[in-house]
């Protein structure tokens, strides 16, 4: 549905995107991941024909975006929720978009309803919260009922409720057979939303794999466990053959096991536990390791 081939963009001395190759397939959510300045937004702008590539090409439905007739019926995009005129109402903003591609007026009402802005439709965008602006941006992307969606950091600035809403929406859209590309710099969020991951750093492709594969490689859950008697626990973990390592405070981290197993094991051997928890931050850590060499601006450790 979207094909990016050797896509390259240089701004003077800065290389924002360096020979990127990937595809966005229908029926799944593709997470486009990378730290700040990795070139995600630049890539999306090139896909939409807004920025001209220095080399390479991006094809949508096998053609350059600019060659599409009524492009909003083929591709829906949310680039920047702030790029709207505050003086227009939500309905007014969608009206000119609909007019530009000959979309029926009822689509305006449908998408306003779908994103939950029906009540605010005739209010000026100037008074919208960031969350409402993101919803309006999503409404604009959905206006032409397109089979391809490109969303640049749609969860930026959303509260947990809004984040869950976006996640459910994207999963639903992919479930209908659409190709969904969504950029983010939050690995943990993408692990929940995306079926496939394209990871970039400094404009280069770092990984292109299914979320499942990524989780299998990097996301093995660790269990943190602490016992009344640390020595007894250490003995138990050693003899049971689990991959455990001691961490500070007399606690242990066990990888490759579920909390249920560790709890049952401790109970069988009469080891009383103080603490038993699942650690999920390993995804973010794996992402940071993967992109560490590619981070553009980094706080220098003192």
């Amino acid at each position: 549905m979207i094909e990016v081939r050797n896509l390259t963009k240089r701004y003077g001395a800065t290389t924002a995107v360096a020979g990127l190759d990937f595809r966005v397939e229908p029926g799944r959510v593709t997470g486009f991941l990378g730290p700040n300045g990795a070139g995600k937004s630049t890539t999306l702008r090139m896909v939409l024909g807004l920025d001209r590539p220095t080399a390479g090409e991006a094809l949508v439905h096998g053609r350059p975006y600019a060659a599409l007739e009524a492009p909003l019926r083929r591709v829906g995009a949310l680039l920047d929720a702030h790029a709207v005129h505050g003086g227009r109402t939500a309905r007014g903003h969608l009206r000119w978009l609909a007019a530009s591609n000959g979309l029926p007026r009822r689509r305006i009402e449908e998408v306003l309803e779908q994103v939950g802005l029906a009540e605010a439709a005739d209010r000026r965008i100037r008074g919208f919260s960031l969350g409402m602006r993101q919803r309006l941006g999503v409404a604009a992307a959905l206006l032409g009922d397109p089979p391809v969606l490109l969303l640049d950091e749609p969860v930026n600035g959303l509260d947990p409720e809004g984040i869950r809403w976006i996640r459910t929406l994207l999963r639903g859209l992919a479930g209908e057979g659409r190709a969904v590309l969504v950029s983010s710099h939050l690995m943990a969020e993408m692990a929940l939303t995306a079926d496939h991951l394209v990871v970039v750093g400094r404009g280069r492709l770092l990984a292109d794999l299914s979320t499942e594969a990524f989780l299998a490689q990097h996301g093995r859950a660790r269990v943190r466990v602490r016992a009344v008697d640390p020595l007894k626990l250490a003995d138990l973990l050693r003899t049971s053959g689990t991959a455990a390592r001691p961490v500070e405070g007399g606690a242990w981290e066990v990888s490759g096991a579920a909390p249920e197993e560790i709890g049952a094991l401790a109970a069988r051997h009469g080891v009383a536990l103080y603490e038993l928890s699942l650690l999920q931050d390993s995804l973010e850590e794996a992402f940071m390791r993967m992109t560490a060499d590619a981070v553009e601006y980094r706080a220098v450790a003192a």
Partner: peptide, 14 residues
């Protein structure tokens, strides 16, 4: 000024 030029050109890319 508002940045809608990108939405405009995405809607009418020619």
């Amino acid at each position: 000024a508002s940045g809608t030029v990108r939405a405009s050109l995405a809607a009418v890319p020619r």
